[in-house]
Design a protein around this nucleic acid. Structure first.
Lengths: 178, 178
DNA sequence: CATCCATGCGTACACTCGTACACATGGGAT
DNA sequence: ATCCCATGTGTACGAGTGTACGCATGGATG
């Protein structure tokens, strides 16, 4: 049966899960679909992740880390900030401009936490990480507010299908910063 | 087979769908579950709603109308506003305080639109209605921003499981109002 | 009163799903 | 060199799903 030695299998399954969610949404995620996408037998996915929630947690966590990495790598938020609102608005623009699967995936996982308690800690972690990142340039309360506002704006863009107005976003974000 | 004359059946199915989504989430919604909840045979649900999306649209629309009605009935936003931010913060408090199934349902349906294009117009409608309601007391751009911020704050509360801080919400909302 | 079709009802089919289980295999500990 | 168990594989089962279809019924229409 040609068993293969595959030490990275667990990781590959997570990657496959992210791709599946990106393409078909969480509703399309199953042990079987992810197994097919990762090119592993069904039993393998159930072995590494007893339950789908477990797999989702891993996927959400990894997506978060990826986002954080992108954010950090974008270099912004270094040194003294002169235009925090503009910086954030620019990020959102980049994020929303590219392949939207990334954004949609992030929010899909994020919001799935509403119904799946298992995901909630990870989702909360994401918001907190972002807030604490912003906290280096404003007070914590404002940071949280900025996260909330960014979430709301992104959702509006995604849901209404409208286009993203960076100038508008910057203007509004600026109002929140005292 | 005791066929019953039931002119309100369609409506009762929608109500049942809302209850089902409120209890088990969208994932738990199926022709069968809603049929059981509405106490009608399976064939009846498939007759009135050929597809689940169709049923979801009806449910989402009705939920929206219900919310709008509650909003309007709450009496606020009449006459000259002296403290719009406080008014809104108060609403959110009431909304989040009661049985959270209502809020969760609203967001669950709202966010399902991310993946189901059929729902998107209805979700967008909700945001627009609320925004246009607010537009009577501020400019449209601010109104949209307020909606976004309220969404973001609600999500943060729901996801982090934390408690709602009305004073905080009011303070932040006030900043957005020019 | 006749009849028609929107509505109601039951059932069957093909499919996917989660889960469980028995067995294979070989890297690494001993 | 040997053995063990973490890992990999295949298959089966029961539950739940969307959908389709044939038939029943009785308000509405003429």
């Amino acid at each position: 049966m040609a068993r293969r030695y595959d030490p990275e299998r667990r990781q590959r399954i997570i990657d496959a899960a992210i791709r599946v969610v990106g393409e078909k949404g969480i509703a399309g995620l199953s042990h079987r679909t992810v197994a097919a996408e990762a090119d592993v037998p069904l039993g393998s996915t159930t072995y590494h992740f007893k339950t789908l929630d477990e797999l989702l947690v891993a996927a959400l966590r990894q997506a978060n880390e990826g986002f954080a990495k992108v954010l950090a790598a974008s270099g912004g938020l270094e040194g003294p900030q002169t235009d925090l609102a503009g910086e954030l608005a620019g990020w959102m623009g980049e994020w929303l401009a590219g392949d939207r699967t990334g954004v949609e995936l992030e929010y899909e996982l994020y919001l799935a936490a509403l119904r799946r308690p298992a995901l909630r800690p990870v989702a909360a972690e994401w918001a907190e990480d972002l807030a604490s990142l912003l906290s280096r340039h404003t007070d914590p309360a404002t940071a949280r507010a900025l996260v909330a506002l960014m979430d709301g704006i992104c959702l509006q863009v995604l849901l209404t299908g409208g286009s993203y107005d960076e100038g508008y976003a910057r203007e509004i974000l600026a109002r929140v910063i005292p």
